[in-house]
Simulated assay, not measured.
Amino acid sequence: METISTIAVCGAGTMGSGIAQLCAQKGIDTILFDVNETILQNSRRRIWMNLDSLQQKGKIAGAELAAIQKRLHFTHQLSDCVAPVMIEAIIEQKEVKATLLNQVLTINQYQTILASNTSSISINALAAAVSHPQCLAGLHFFNPATIMQLVEVIKGEQTAPEVITTLLALSKQLGKTPVVCNDAPGFIVNRVARPYYLEALRLVEQGLATVEQVDAVMEASGFKMGPFKLMDLIGIDINYSVSCIVWEALGKPPRLTPSALQQQKVEVKQLGKKSGTGFYQYQ
Rank of each mutant, 00 (worst) to 15 (best):
I31P: 08
I47P: 01
V85S: 09
L72I: 01
R46M: 13
Y110F: 13
S122K: 07
A24F: 05
T106E: 15
I60Q: 07
L65T: 06
T30I: 00
A89V: 05
L65F: 10
T75E: 05
Q103V: 04
Q41K: 15
I31G: 08
N102D: 02
Q21V: 06
D34K: 05
K59P: 10
A89C: 12
L54H: 09
E92L: 02
S122L: 10
K26A: 01
A61D: 15
F74K: 01
S122V: 05
T38W: 08
Q25W: 03
Q41R: 11
W48N: 14
L105I: 09
G27V: 00
C81H: 06
H73I: 13
E95S: 14
S53H: 15
S79R: 14
N36H: 07
S43K: 02
L78W: 07
I60L: 11
L78G: 06
I47F: 01
Q56R: 15
I107D: 07
K59Q: 15
G27L: 01
K59D: 11
R71D: 05
L100Q: 00
T99N: 12
P84H: 06
S43Y: 00
W48L: 11
S119D: 05
L100H: 01
R71K: 08
S119F: 04
N117M: 09
N102L: 00
A67W: 00
L51F: 00
M49G: 13
L101S: 04
E64H: 07
I107M: 09
D29I: 11
E37L: 09
S79C: 11
I113N: 05
L72K: 05
D52S: 12
K59W: 12
L72T: 04
T118R: 04
I87G: 09
V35Y: 10
I107R: 04
V104N: 01
S53I: 12
T112A: 08
V96E: 11
I113H: 05
T75M: 07
G58T: 08
V85W: 04
I121F: 09
H76N: 15
H73Q: 13
A61S: 15
V82K: 15
M86H: 12
L65I: 08
I121M: 05
H76C: 13
V104M: 07
N108S: 02
R44P: 01
Q55R: 14
N108W: 01
N117C: 09
R46E: 14
Q103P: 02
L72G: 00
M86A: 15
I121G: 11
C81E: 03
Q56G: 11
R46F: 12
A67Q: 11
I28E: 06
Q109G: 08
L100M: 02
A66I: 09
P84N: 06
Q69P: 04
I113M: 03
V35A: 15
L101Q: 02
S53R: 15
T30W: 02
A67E: 13
L32G: 03
Q21K: 10
S43G: 10
G62Y: 07
N117V: 07
L114N: 01
H73N: 14
Q111P: 02
I47G: 04
L32V: 00
V96R: 12
C23H: 00
E88T: 03
K94G: 05
I91A: 10
E64T: 11
K59V: 10
K97W: 06
K97T: 05
R45Q: 14
P84K: 06
T99G: 15
S79L: 12
A67T: 10
M86G: 12
S120F: 06
I60C: 03
